[in-house]
C-alpha cells in the first residue's frame, strides 16, 4: 500500500472513531455524521460487489446502517472502528447472497478495502502534500517527510538523512510551525 493511501486510511479511522466515541456518549450530530460517512463508503463497497442493481445496494446500505445503530454496543473502543463496520458489512453481504441463493464466494479481503480511497483522491492527496511541503527549506521538508509521512522514528530519520536527532526534532518543529502559520494566513 502506498504511503499516502495509508495516511488517508489512518485519517479515516481516526475521524470515524472520534465520531463513534461521541455518538456512544449520546451525541446525535456525531452519530449523524458518522452514519453519513459510513453510508458513502458502503454504497461504493456494495456497488462493486452487486453491480448495477442500485435498489439492492441501497437496501443493503440501509440494513448495515441500522445494524451499526442498533448493535453499536458491540463496538469495542479499544479496537479499530473500520474493522468493526467492515465485519458488519461483510456479514450483511454474505447474508444477502445466501438469501438470494447465490453461490458467489466472498473472498476474504483485507478490511482496509472498504475504507480505501479511490485512485483520484489518492493522487490529489499526494499532490497536495508535495505542494504544501514545497515551501519549506530542504532540511525541514526532509525531516517532516521522514517522520510524519514515512512514519520513521527520530533515530531512523536521523540515520536516513544524515541530520542529527536533535536537528530532526528542531526541523520538524520549525517546519510544522511554518506550515501552520501559512495555513492560517490562507484561511
Amino acid at each position: 500500500m502506498s504511503e499516502t493511501l495509508f495516511i488517508a486510511q489512518l485519517n479515516t479511522e481516526a475521524e470515524l472513531r472520534a465520531l463513534m466515541v461521541a455518538a456512544l456518549q449520546g451525541d446525535g450530530n456525531a452519530h449523524h455524521a458518522l452514519l453519513s460517512k459510513i453510508a458513502l463508503k458502503l454504497r461504493a463497497f456494495f456497488g462493486r460487489r452487486l453491480g448495477r442493481d442500485a435498489a439492492e445496494v441501497e437496501d443493503l446500505v440501509q440494513e448495515v446502517l441500522i445494524a451499526v445503530h442498533t448493535r453499536r454496543d458491540t463496538y469495542d473502543p479499544s479496537r479499530p472502528l473500520t474493522s468493526w463496520v467492515y465485519a458488519i458489512a461483510r456479514y450483511k453481504l454474505a447474508d444477502c447472497f445466501r438469501r438470494n441463493h447465490r453461490r458467489e464466494m466472498i473472498q476474504l479481503e483485507d478490511d482496509l478495502e472498504l475504507f480505501s480511497v479511490d485512485e483520484s483522491e489518492q493522487y490529489s492527496a499526494r499532490q497536495d502534500i508535495d505542494q504544501m511541503l514545497a515551501v519549506l527549506p530542504d532540511s525541514q521538508r526532509q525531516a517532516i517527510r521522514l517522520t510524519r509521512i514515512d512514519g520513521l522514528s527520530t533515530a531512523e530519520a536521523a540515520q536516513r538523512s544524515g541530520q542529527s536527532e536533535s536537528l530532526i526534532k528542531v526541523n520538524v518543529h520549525r517546519g510544522m510551525k511554518r506550515l501552520m502559520a501559512l495555513h492560517a494566513e490562507v484561511e
Binding site: G26, D27, G28, L35, S36, A39, V61, L65, I66, H69
Partner: peptide
Amino acid sequence: MQTSDLIKQLSTQVMPVK
C-alpha cells in the same frame, strides 16, 4: 425510504451506551 431520511431518523434520539 431514502437513506438520508433513515440516517436522520436514527440520529434523532441517540441513547448513550455504557
